[in-house]
Computed example of a mutant assay.
Amino acid sequence: MPAEPAELVTLDRIGRRFGADPPVVALRGVDLQVRTGDWLAVVGPSGSGKSTLLNIIGCLDRPDEGSYRFEGLDVAALSDRDRAGLRSHRLGFVFQSFHLLAHRSVLENVMLAEVYAMRPRSGRRDRALAALAAVGLADRTDHLPTHLSGGERQRAAIARALLNEPALLLCDEPTGNLDSRTTAAILGLLGELHAHGLTIIVITHDPGVAERAQRRVRIVDGELRDDG
């Protein structure tokens, strides 16, 4: 029998609060396991805690309580520098607003992923070109982001996220600024990446986006419920 996929993300009783007197509880007692090769959708309305959850998984924030292990590594025990290294080398991020530099070409935007990760310069351009070709943007490499459609900008953002070959792709409302046809195309691209073995977590308020995932959980008032 084939070996069971390894656990990539393990959250145990995660809690997160903001402010004081009284504090706002964003997450409470969250348990979650994500295995290598999963495609998980986290569904919930605005203010439910889903972006806070993604920020903790993405090492952009720290929980106030509970434990988080990534590939078996105790994330809470890492220094800020080591957490930054984990983000750069093992995690990829795709956001609703793309986060592309308007004054840089699409190719330069993608290459910046390796600059931030301090990877060798040799071969960087070729690797970025290959990533752009993989998302269907081989003919847009010299364009500025302002000259691209919304779908093309999100494809560029996905190419940038993939350049460092992450173990996990984190998507925060990746289709929130896109029309239905473009949304379908982006979900199709994510489906292709998942079929090739990439582990994906998508944060969304859209049931149609969540439906494409192989597994769904719902977050309500900071508490996670498994939808199957």
Rank of each mutant, 00 (worst) to 15 (best):
P2W: 01
P2L: 04
A3F: 01
E4D: 10
A6W: 02
D12N: 14
I14L: 13
V25W: 08
A26I: 11
R28V: 03
V30M: 08
D31Y: 06
L32E: 01
V34P: 09
V34K: 05
G37L: 11
L40F: 09
G47W: 06
S48E: 01
G49T: 06
S51A: 08
S51K: 03
L54D: 02
D61H: 04
R62D: 08
E65T: 13
G66E: 04
F70C: 10
F70S: 05
F70P: 07
E71H: 06
V75E: 02
R81S: 13
D82I: 03
R83H: 04
R87P: 10
L91V: 07
V94F: 07
F95Y: 15
F95A: 04
L100Q: 06
L100S: 09
L100R: 14
V106Q: 07
M111H: 10
P120G: 04
R124E: 01
R127A: 14
L129E: 13
A131S: 13
L132V: 06
A134W: 00
V135K: 13
A138M: 05
R140Y: 01
P145I: 03
T146C: 02
H147A: 15
G151D: 03
E152T: 11
A156V: 03
A159Y: 08
A161C: 10
L163N: 04
L163A: 09
N164M: 09
E165L: 09
A167R: 15
A167S: 14
C171D: 04
D172G: 05
E173N: 13
G176S: 07
S180H: 11
R181Y: 04
T183H: 02
T183N: 05
A195F: 00
L198K: 14
I200W: 08
T204I: 13
P207N: 03
G208Q: 14
V209P: 01
A210W: 03
E211H: 12
E211R: 13
R215E: 01
R216G: 01
R216P: 00
V220R: 14
L224G: 06
